[in-house]
């Protein structure tokens, strides 16, 4: 018997596979392709206190083995999420991780209170790393004191597991990781997108409406694996690893580097069943290699 269940900082997942925020909508978008009950958790689109329109188009550009996006946290706001999306998600036997973002610590406090009071939220992933919004987002995540303050405020306002999603666009990510760990985070999500841009040489202008965007997809995977490796050895918290995972082999790299769970993101756009393929492949790898508990693999590359 193989055990795929993991505990991500108090969040009990039946297997280590979840979705990366912003790549899986609020669940129903992929329900025709994926049995949502089989996911370890569903991580939904970044949600803010107020509805947000997001950035001007174009919002996406293809790059070598990757994409740049500058969606800008378009979302209907937390109240509509609670009223419309949570009732749908409650039908499934799968924990829901809500990714939250705000312009101020007051925003983070209020959205945390509302989601904690709502029925059907299993954990909060605190987005202090979105590169595509002017206020908040990455501004919090690239400054250790600010990042820690946001996590402290969220921690004070919830009993739910708190997952801090960190930006790779910093000099030393382990410093920020230690800071948010001290501030009360239960787990770390690594990594958000890498800030990048693309220029249209015919128009002689940036391709994206917001000029810069976040790079995701297979192109960033080696960077993400390296960061998981470094942070896993520097901080005691469990890690939700992500960044260009498209296959089970990719996911296993993250787990061996120190991730307790993993998220499939951009790959969903290419293969709508990518999460299921990754899950099946991890199970096959465990069977083929006589691994009884997926936990045996976590950090095995350095332990």
């Amino acid at each position: 018997m193989i055990n795929l269940a993991v505990d991500l900082g108090g969040l009990k997942m039946k297997n280590p596979v979840t979705t990366a925020s912003g790549t899986f909508g609020f669940g129903p978008e992929y329900a025709p392709y994926v049995d949502l009950n089989r996911l370890g958790a569903i991580t939904v689109k970044g949600t803010t206190l107020e509805p947000r329109k997001g950035n001007a188009t174009p919002r996406i550009a293809e790059t070598p083995a990757g994409i740049l996006n500058c969606i800008g946290l378009q979302n209907p706001g937390v109240d509509e999420f609670i009223a419309k999306s949570l009732p749908y998600l409650r039908k499934y036997d799968t924990p829901v991780i809500v990714n939250i973002a705000g312009n101020s610590t007051d925003d983070y406090a209020e959205i945390t209170r509302r989601l904690t009071a709502a029925d059907g939220v299993s954990a909060l992933e605190v987005n202090i790393s979105c590169p595509n919004v002017k206020q908040g987002g990455m501004v919090f995540g690239t400054n250790c004191a600010a990042a820690s303050e946001v996590i402290r405020v969220v921690r004070q306002n919830t009993t739910l597991p708190v997952i801090a999603k960190l930006s790779p666009n910093v000099t030393d990510i382990t410093e920020i990781a230690c800071g948010v760990a001290d501030a009360g985070a239960d787990a770390l999500a690594l990594i958000n997108t890498l800030l990048g841009m693309k220029i249209d040489i015919k128009a002689r202008k940036p391709v994206l409406g917001n000029i810069m965007g976040g790079l995701s997809g297979p192109a960033i995977r080696p960077v993400a694996v390296r960061i998981v490796w470094q942070v896993a050895q520097a901080v005691k918290l469990p890690i939700l690893g992500m960044g260009g995972i498209t296959t089970a082999e990719d996911a296993l790299e993250f787990i061996l580097a120190g991730a307790t769970a993993i998220a499939v993101g951009t790959a969903n756009f290419v293969n709508p069943r990518a999460t299921m393929d990754v899950l099946d492949g991890i199970e096959r790898y465990m069977r083929d290699n006589g691994v009884k508990d997926v936990g045996e693999l976590v950090g095995a590359a350095w332990q």
């Binding site: 790549t23 978008e29 188009t57 174009p58 919002r59 996406i60 994409i67 378009q74 709508p272």
Partner: peptide, 16 residues
């Protein structure tokens, strides 16, 4: 016509 990502309404790239 718009640049598209997922095609199923999840990524919010192709908005008008």
């Amino acid at each position: 016509e718009e640049r598209m990502g997922c095609g199923v309404g999840a990524c919010l790239a192709c908005v008008c």
